[in-house]
Design a binder for these strands. Structure first.
Lengths: 222, 222
DNA sequence: TTTATTCCATGCGAATTCTAATTGTAGAAG
DNA sequence: CTTCTACAATTAGAATTCGCATGGAATAAA
């Protein structure tokens, strides 16, 4: 998980960076509000830690502009201010949480975890009958037995399942899985379909990967 | 973090639910002991808040039955009783902490944090077969024999074990262990994997660090 | 400086991907 | 129903890619 810290007090940011890195987050630090916003807009980050007061532009303004492009990335404010009004103002501007300085590092960690847990649709899995494909961990199961697949086999199966119950033309498959965008007449697809069916050990009554003659293939829920 | 409150006094449970949700916990409330147990056994929750006296079955009995399936989920009792005997009895039945009514919400929050923190630390018994990795002391053991590792070796192994049984893409590894966020094609990972396998002296039948060709590596429990 | 760690460059070997030739089959045409 | 044709399935092996191991260079630490 990647976290961007925008904080002008080097002491704090170093402390945070070090601590968060020990927790396996990848951390970048930016001191200036303006360049912080630019970095944030790169879309590289899963969470922002913003100081309330920043040189350049304020954390609130940064949040407001950032939210236009990234409505879902969690933002946590680090703030010395504790008046209700300003806190409300901050949260209204699009932040998800705030923490008052000085704070315990553990408490910050917890808030970060909460935000990231809510946001990450963690184990998104694609299914096709007894077959379960997990894109993130690059694993395929059939009846909870793991099936080792090669890269291309995996990519092909993923494409088919994502287009479940839709016929996939050979040209579409070649485009998406092989990234070939011109007319290309080849037998690769057949070969990989073949090895997929083999590895998945599909029986006669398990016609999950169907051939559409003259067109392509279809992953079909039975 | 998901919390289940089992409490028959609606006033208290509403108060708790609202407060905890403001702290970004996901909260469910159940009034009845029996149905509370059923809900708890769904395994959806990271922590239980139980009233001592409940309609249906008592908090103690709930705890006892719940512990069979979930020995690690923290349980905090809310109790009006304050005799030492009964408290001891409650803790022996498998609760982790208790708090006497009436209580300050902040205090409850603190106890919840402590429990969740302890859990997440304890559950980080980072093991992989005979390999045990202790993040705090920066040590790695194999069969209680210490294996000296360098920083990067340690970081890499830690990352792999934290993602045990999941394939780690090279890009993720580079991101998390080396903190490099752009496309970077290099052989470093291979080199360190190599030295890890060497230092850990993995035999043929100890395929704990598996290569997923074209994708990355996976720490796998055999 | 010396020493240890991290990283780079290389060739080899092995797994994957692809080509191509053969065999099998569905469906149309007769 | 039989034959024919076009397409799909299967297989072997060629081509390619990728990971492994190694030695040593660059960098950081002592």
């Amino acid at each position: 998980m990647r976290i961007l810290i925008v904080e002008d007090e080097v002491g704090i940011s170093n402390f945070l960076k070090q601590g968060l890195e020990e927790e396996n987050y990848a951390v970048d630090v930016e001191e200036n509000g303006k360049s912080g916003l630019e970095l944030a807009l790169s879309g590289e980050y899963d969470l922002l830690l913003l100081d309330w007061m920043l040189p350049g532009i304020s954390g609130i303004e940064l949040t407001r502009q950032f939210r236009v492009s990234f409505p879902d990335t969690p933002i946590i404010f680090l703030t010395a201010k504790d008046t209700v009004d300003e806190t409300v103002f901050g949260l209204q501007s699009g932040a998800n949480d705030y923490i008052k300085k000085p704070f315990h590092f553990e408490e910050l960690l917890e808030r970060i975890r909460v935000q990231l847990r809510n946001r990450s649709k963690e184990n998104e899995s694609l299914t096709l009958g007894p077959i379960r494909l997990i894109p993130q961990s690059f694993q395929v199961f059939k009846n909870s037995e793991e099936i080792p697949l090669t890269q291309k086999e995996f990519a092909l199966l993923e494409f088919l399942i994502r287009n479940k119950n839709k016929v996939c033309r050979r040209t579409r498959i070649i485009e998406s899985v092989w990234d070939i965008h011109f007319e290309y007449n080849t037998g690769v697809i057949d070969v990989f379909i073949n090895s997929l069916r083999k590895k998945l050990n599909l029986q006669k009554d398990e016609d999950y990967i169907q051939t559409i003659r003259g067109v392509g293939y279809m992953a079909k829920e039975l």
